[in-house]
Nucleic acid binder design. Sequence first.
DNA 1: ATTAATAGCGAAAACGTTTGCGTGTTGACA
DNA 2: TGTCAACACGCAAACGTTTTCGCTATTAAT
Lengths: 352, 352
Amino acid sequence: MLNTHIMKKKITLKQIARELDVSISTVSKALRDSIEISEDTRQKVQAFAKLYNYRPNNIALSLKNRKTKTIGVIIPEIVHHFFSKVIRGIELVANKRGYNVIIGLSNESFDKEVINMQMLANGSIDGFILSIAKETLQQQDYHHFKETINQGMPIVMFDRIVNEIHCDKVIIDDLKGSKNAVSKLLSNGCQNVAIITTKDYVSVGKLRTQGYLEALEDFKITPDTNLILKVDDELVSEDHLESLENEIEGLFQGNKNIDGVFAVNELYAIIAMKVARNLGMKIPEDIQFIGFTDGVLSKHATPSLTTVSQHGQLMGEKAAELLIDNLEREDEEEHYKTIVIATELVERNSTK
Amino acid sequence: MLNTHIMKKKITLKQIARELDVSISTVSKALRDSIEISEDTRQKVQAFAKLYNYRPNNIALSLKNRKTKTIGVIIPEIVHHFFSKVIRGIELVANKRGYNVIIGLSNESFDKEVINMQMLANGSIDGFILSIAKETLQQQDYHHFKETINQGMPIVMFDRIVNEIHCDKVIIDDLKGSKNAVSKLLSNGCQNVAIITTKDYVSVGKLRTQGYLEALEDFKITPDTNLILKVDDELVSEDHLESLENEIEGLFQGNKNIDGVFAVNELYAIIAMKVARNLGMKIPEDIQFIGFTDGVLSKHATPSLTTVSQHGQLMGEKAAELLIDNLEREDEEEHYKTIVIATELVERNSTK
DNA sequence: ATTAATAGCGAAAACGTTTGCGTGTTGACA
DNA sequence: TGTCAACACGCAAACGTTTTCGCTATTAAT
C-alpha cells in the first residue's frame, strides 16, 4: 500500500531473530521465560518484542498443536431470539475459557448444514455445537453427524436433537414445560384448552404436544382433536402469516367454547391473541394464553404474554462447557451426557 | 477412544503417500490434476483419497497461503434483531464467496472489544467487519482500530462508525430516514411532534435527532426542547424499563398537546405507545407513532408500528462485499468507500 | 592441569500443505 | 550407438511456531 503512514506489519520470530542476531529458538525461549536463556538476552528480546507488538501467529500454533481453540456453531437461523441467546451463552463461556466461536447458518436446509460442517471440519475447529435443521429432521439423514463424530471431532447438540446420534446433548424439558403450562391454564379454570403446535417431525413440537396431552389426562379431560392445531411450518415462513391467521380463526370459529390456548412458540401465541381480540374476546377474562419461548415479543405484547421460558443463554453456556470439557479431557473414556434445562413459567397478563 | 466402531481419523497427504508408496508431492499433484502425474497414479491416488474422504487441512493451507478465508465480526450484542440481521447478510455473501465468519461480542464494552480484536488479529482472520461499542464511542479511544489497519488488516465498519478512522464504511442514511419519518407525521397533520432519542454520543442517535430538527424546519416549526427526550441508555439495560416508562409518561403529562411521536428505536416506540394507551389516548386518532428499526416488535405490536426500516441484512451483505473485494484486490491502491443504505418507511397502523 | 558440570545458545524436526526444480527412465531419431 | 525430449516422479523449501537434543565455552572441582 502506498500509504505515507508507518506500516508495522505483523512481526514474526524469524524477523526478531534476524534483527537481534540470535536464533529463532532463542527468541521463542526468551519470550516464554525459559531458564535456558540468559537474563540479558531475555530482556533484550522481550523489549524488542514489546516494541514491535509481537504476537504469536495463531494459525502456526494451531497447526503445531493440532488444536485450534475454536468452536464451530451450526444453527438453523440467527435472526431468532432463542438462537441468538444460545450463541451469547456459548460465546460467554468460550471466551472465558480461551476459545473463539465460528458461526455457520444452515438456514434450515440439509445441504447447507452438510456444506457448513464440511467447511469447518477440515481442521478449522476443534468441535461442534449445533441444532439440527428442520429439513435434516424431515429427511432423517444424519450421516454427516456420524462421520464427524467418527473422525474424532466431538459434537454437542442442543434443543433440536436426535436420539440416534450418540453425543453430548443439552435440551430443555419440553414435556414438563408444556405440561406445566397447560396445567396452569386448567387450574386457572379453563375448560377447553386448545394447542397450536407444529408438525410432529419437529421433535420439540411433538414433545410439547405430548405435555399438553398429559396435562389433560391429569385433569381427567378427554382430548378433543378439534382443539389441536398442527401448523405447517412452510406457511409461516417470512410473511405468509395471513394463512396462519386464517387457520387460527378457523379454530376459534369452529370451537366457540375455547377459553385457553397454549402455543408452542411465541409468534403463534401473539397471532392467536390478535385473532381472538379481533373476534371480540377479552384477554384474559374470556380466554387465556400461554406461549413457549423467552423472546422479546412476549414481554412487550399487549397484553404481555405468559410464557414458558427456555433459558436459551443457559443452554448455550452448558453446551459450551460440555464441549470444552470434552476437548480438554485427558482420559478418552467417553460416555455422553444429556443435560436437561428446567423451564420456568413466567406469568404475565395473558393469564389470570 | 475405546469405541468398537471403526474410527476413520482425518487422513493426511503423508499417510496417503506412505500407503500408496509414492511421495507427498505426487499425491498433492495427483489430487490437483497436475499434468506432471501419469493417468495411472492419478486415478489410484484419487480413488484412495475419495475412499478415505480426504480433505486438505485448512489450517495448513492458511499458514501456507497466509490467508485464512475467514472474516472476523465484532458486534456489541447479538441478541438484537438488527445485528443478527446484519450477521445473516454477512454470512450469506461470505459463504457464497468461500469465507467463514467468526463472531466476537464486545457487549458494548471497550475492553472486550480490544481483547476480541487482539484474539482474532493474530492470524486467525483476514479482515474485520465491526460496529463500535458504546463505551468505545464514549471514551473516543480508537487506537485498536488504527493499529489493526496499520498492520495491514482491513476493517469495514457498519452502522456505528467514526469519521476519524479511515476505512470502508456502510451506514444507513439516518438523517434522511428520520427526516422522512418526521415529515410524514407532520404531513399527516401532527402539530406537536415529540422525539424520544438517545444521548448524543451514540452517533446514530445524534443524526436521527438532527433529522427530526431538519424536518421541523422544513415545516417552519420552531423546535420545543420540552418535546425532545434524550434517554440515558444505562436505564434501559435489561429490565429497568419502568424508569423509561416514567420518563415517557412525564413527557406526555408535561405536554398534553403531543400528537405525534418519533422514537429512534423500536423499543422506545413500543413503550411509548403503551404509555399513551394507558393515558387513554387513541392510536393513531389522537396520537401517531413512528419507530426506527426493522425489528419483530413493530410488526406484531398492537397497533402495528410504522417504522423506518434499516435493511440490516443488506448492510451486512454490502459490508462483506466491501471487505472481500478489498481482500481479493490485486492492486494495492486504497481509497475507502462509504456505502449509504437507503431507509424505507414501512407504513403500518400507528399512523394515519 | 585434567575432567566434569553447567550455562547459553543453535540446529532441526514437526504440524500439513503447495510448488519450482532436479533427475532418472523411457523412447525416438539421427 | 549416442543425443535429446518427454514423461513421471521426488526433493526441498516455505508458511510460523515449539521443543528436543546437541554443541561449545566457561566455570568449578579434583
